[in-house]
Design a binder for these strands. Structure first.
Lengths: 109, 109
DNA sequence: TAAAATACCACGTCTGTCGTAGTATGTCAA
DNA sequence: TTGACATACTACGACAGACGTGGTATTTTA
């Protein structure tokens, strides 16, 4: 079976995370499950990739974090998208449409 | 204007080069001009990226090289796709179709 | 009561891309 | 004839994102 390589999805992890955060604040474990689910099990983000994406995006001020708790009292770090993150997301969507068209020129029928 | 970032096209440079080599042997400068042309000037591959892709693909035996000359007598290195390169190309096409579907799930309408 | 799920983090490595810079030849216009 | 521009590469080092490995700690479930 063909798998999605990291070089190919690279540059879209941030976009996927932002897409999910646009629906409301969330945290690592939940995001990772949602990516798996939404992609129809076709893409499973690595934990380290996910958490380093959070760090990177927070330093770029695309997201902010705050501490929360699960129902059972476990600590969690929640992330929320910022206005800059919204803008960034929309730019990535535009870029995706452009990139898609370019790549398809090199995909033989 | 939105531009195509290297993180996004990353992983497709090899595929684009192989697509062009499937049409017959070619060399660096020509490949780079064809990529620019076929992409409608939307993507211009960097010289260093191109030549390092050649080296990488040759070591992976996806392409082979041989020396030739231009009409005016200048030396050129030509590249030809191998059977392994053909197979690799088709795998990347499959992967692209998969990846495209996944990413589009995270692109808001 | 042990395994699995939840929830995260540190550290170091790898790979592809790219910036900078350099070599060398051919062509064409002022 | 000279200088700019196109052609055709190559070397070297830096950088960023992804990921492998391994670790901590709590809760839930079989």
């Amino acid at each position: 079976m063909t798998n999605i390589s990291s070089d190919v999805i690279r540059g879209y992890n941030d976009t996927m995370i932002l897409y999910l955060l646009r629906q409301g604040p969330s945290y690592g474990y939940e995001i990772s499950k949602k990516i798996k689910e939404l992609s129809g099990e076709k893409y499973i983000i690595k934990e380290t990739t996910l958490y380093s994406a959070f760090t990177r995006m927070e330093s770029k001020e695309l997201i902010t974090s705050y501490s929360g708790e699960s129902e059972s009292g476990k600590k969690r770090t929640y992330y929320r998208i910022t206005d800059q993150g919204e803008t960034y997301y929309r730019e990535r969507v535009d870029e995706w449409n452009l990139t898609k068209d370019v790549i398809e020129k090199f995909i033989a029928v």
